[in-house]
Amino acid sequence: MIPLHRNPAFYQLLADSYARLLGRPLVPQSMPAGEATEWLYESAPFAVLAHNTDPDPLFIYGNKAAQRRFGYSWDEITGLPSRLSAEAPNREERQQFLARVERLGYEAGYKGVRVTKSGQRFMIEEATLWQLLDADGKQHGQAVVIPRTRDI
């Protein structure tokens, strides 16, 4: 099985659902799916994370920018409960945010405190979270683009 960070079909799910809901492309320039898959994972200047639809959602994707910011390798971040990206006191706010996205399809301009593997706190800013919906409307989880972060 191809890991999701190398899977053009998963990239297409990310990119197509983002474009349908937000009306703009996920990747700034037009490129073939294979090339875009690689660029988003290896070179994107913004973090991208996705989690599945489990009752306690698990990260299934985290590009290199996300791995660097959160301090996890691919093998560590995939399978990690996504709630662990926030400290316990901030998890209720995060859960309310996820519920709004479920109702509305996406939310842009989100900011909140997150935590690295080592426990360092940082602020995510101008994040956009969206539903991972395929062309038939089936939900596969949620994904987020985090364009900016700052240490706190």
Results as ranks from 00 to 15, higher is better:
Gln139Arg: 11
Gln131Phe: 08
Trp39His: 12
Val115Lys: 10
Leu4Glu: 03
Arg114Val: 08
Tyr110Asn: 01
Arg150Ile: 01
Leu22Ala: 04
Ser43Trp: 10
Ala108Ser: 11
Leu58Cys: 06
Val115Trp: 12
Asn52Met: 13
Glu38Gln: 13
Trp74Arg: 07
Ile152Asn: 09
Ile146Thr: 03
Trp130His: 05
Leu84Ser: 11
Ala88Phe: 10
Val101Phe: 00
Ala33Gly: 08
Asn52Phe: 12
Val113Met: 07
Met123Ala: 09
Ala66Arg: 03
Gln29Ala: 11
Arg6Asn: 11
Asp75Leu: 02
Ala44Gln: 04
Asp136Ala: 15
Ala15Asn: 03
Leu21Pro: 05
Thr78Pro: 08
Gly141Pro: 04
Lys138Asp: 08
Arg68Leu: 10
Gln139Phe: 00
Gly137Ser: 15
Asp54Ser: 14
Leu58Met: 08
Asp54Phe: 10
Tyr110Trp: 11
Arg94Tyr: 01
Val113Glu: 01
Asp136Ser: 15
Ser30His: 09
Leu14Gln: 09
Ile60Ser: 02
Ala15Cys: 09
Met123Glu: 09
Leu133Arg: 09
Leu21Asp: 02
Gln67Leu: 08
Arg20Ile: 05
Asp151Cys: 12
Pro28Gln: 14
Asp54Val: 02
Arg68Met: 12
Gly119Lys: 07
Pro45His: 12
Val145Trp: 01
Asp56Met: 12
Glu107Tyr: 06
Glu92Gln: 02
Pro25Trp: 13
Arg83Pro: 05
Gly119Arg: 06
Leu13Phe: 05
Tyr18His: 15
Tyr106Met: 00
Leu40Trp: 06
Arg94Pro: 03
Glu102Val: 00
Thr53Leu: 11
Glu125Arg: 13
